[in-house]
């Protein structure tokens, strides 16, 4: 498999984060500025340049033991500095399915 880095040059047009799934349980995680991972989008390192995104990706790809399949995902920043997912897919990854999950009988 070619690594995502080799596949294409990273083009960044707005704020982005690097996201992946945690190896042990598959949970959605975001890469932090200190090289670790967090499940909170708020804690993610935000890149706004190709170089910044590239650096995050390089670190993430090196961390194959903790996170699977890292890629660059767009985010939106509100005036107050709040970070929101940049598209529907990322919204669903962060917030879960948009449908009600089945409840046990009698609930």
């Amino acid at each position: 498999m070619t690594s995502p880095l080799e596949q294409k040059k990273i083009k960044v047009t707005g704020p982005v984060v690097v996201t992946a799934n945690r190896v042990g349980d598959g949970a959605v995680v975001y890469s932090r500025a200190d090289g670790g991972w967090t499940t909170a989008l708020d804690g993610a390192a935000i890149a706004t340049s190709s170089e910044g995104a590239q650096a995050l990706m390089t670190a993430a790809l090196d961390d194959d033991l903790r996170a699977v399949g890292p890629y660059i995902a767009p985010v939106k920043l509100s005036a107050g500095g709040q970070v929101r997912p940049g598209n529907l897919r990322e919204l669903i990854r962060l917030g879960g399915p948009t449908i009600e999950l089945p409840l046990p009988l009698g609930c």
Binding site: D25, G26, V28, V68, G69
Partner: peptide, 16 residues
């Protein structure tokens, strides 16, 4: 990946 796939284990959006 090919080993887990041969046991029916995928990685989806939120989890395996």
């Amino acid at each position: 990946k090919p080993l887990r796939l041969m046991n029916g284990v995928y990685l989806q959006l939120h989890a395996y």
